[in-house]
Amino acid sequence: MFEAGDLLAFSWYTIRALVVAVVRREISLRESISQLWFMASVTTLPSVLVMIPFGVAVALNVGSLAAQIGAEAYGGAIVAFLIIGQAAPLVCALMIAGVGGSAITADLGSRKIREEIDALEVMGVSTVSRLVVPRVLAAILITVLLGALVMVVGIGASLIFHVYVLDGSPGSFLGTLTQFASVTDFVSAEFKAAVFGLVSAIVASYKGLTVRAGPQGVGNAVNEAVVLAFILVFIANAVISQLFPLFVPAKGEYR
């Protein structure tokens, strides 16, 4: 409970510092760009490589099941629900938490045990504003951009497999995709991605700044950060999936 309270307090302080930095345009531009480039370079290719087989698996399983009930034309509807609604933001979040988040924890943890964090605080420099905010902002932006990318990759892989392997009609696939999905679904997915990126970066930063017991503590903090971020991401996904339609009514027909 004590650590949970500290994490909540750190989250509130970080979000407030992020909002203030954005409004006042006081974000460390150099650090933010550096973190953006790093996270993009380590997460883009793995996200794409994960979504290609996922899209193929969706098309294969949907095609087999649909053929049994005579609903082959509704492959696009299932893709709309699975890839746009759930898989794309989750894949991005897992990549940010597992790859980007572990790097954030290791970097900040190493700075902590080298007493660089203490030195900044002695000089009156806010650790959160100087180090955490750029990383959180980069995680949010990269997760949102990755969300759009993996949606395209996943849908494209499903479409290609549906047409060239299962001999389906591209017109029916795209027709049901656009019929059962809407802009609201895309907005919901991107909102989830932003929240997942925020959660993952805050957890990673908190674990990095609270490292103890030297280098071994850094390794333990990385493992704890990844596991905790995964758990919180799945909880956030369940909560957003239930609450988002209450505030933004869906127009897609599958709901």
Rank of each mutant, 00 (worst) to 15 (best):
V218P: 03
T210Q: 05
L246S: 09
L228W: 00
V239Q: 05
R212D: 10
I235W: 01
V227H: 07
L228Y: 00
R212H: 12
P249F: 15
E224T: 11
T210Y: 00
K251M: 15
A238F: 14
G208K: 02
V233F: 04
G219T: 11
L246I: 11
P249R: 15
T210I: 03
K207N: 12
N223F: 10
P215Y: 14
V233R: 00
I235A: 02
L243I: 13
T210E: 02
A250I: 12
V218G: 05
V226I: 14
L243M: 11
R212Y: 08
N220M: 06
F230G: 06
K251Y: 15
V233H: 01
G217I: 02
G219Y: 09
L232E: 06
K207H: 14
T210A: 11
S241Q: 12
A221K: 02
K251R: 15
G214V: 08
P215G: 14
L246Q: 11
A236I: 07
Q242F: 10
G208P: 02
V222M: 12
N220V: 00
G217E: 04
I240E: 04
G208T: 00
K251C: 15
V211Y: 01
G219C: 12
G219A: 14
K207T: 06
V227C: 10
V222W: 05
A229V: 07
V233N: 00
V218R: 07
S241V: 07
S241K: 13
A225D: 01
V227L: 12
L246R: 13
G208S: 04
G217A: 09
N237W: 02
N237I: 06
G214K: 12
N237Q: 13
A225Y: 00
G214C: 13
L246D: 07
L209C: 09
V239D: 02
V226D: 01
F244C: 11
V239E: 02
G208V: 01
N220Q: 06
A236T: 06
V248A: 11
P245R: 10
S241W: 07
G219R: 13
A238D: 12
E224C: 06
V227D: 09
G219P: 08
A221L: 07
F230E: 01
K207Q: 11
A238W: 06
A225T: 03
F244D: 08
P215S: 15
F234A: 04
A213D: 15
P245G: 07
G217Q: 03
V218M: 08
L209D: 04
A236R: 08
P249Q: 14
P249A: 14
A221P: 02
Q216Y: 03
Q242N: 04
V226A: 10
N237D: 13
L243G: 06
G208M: 02
L232Y: 07
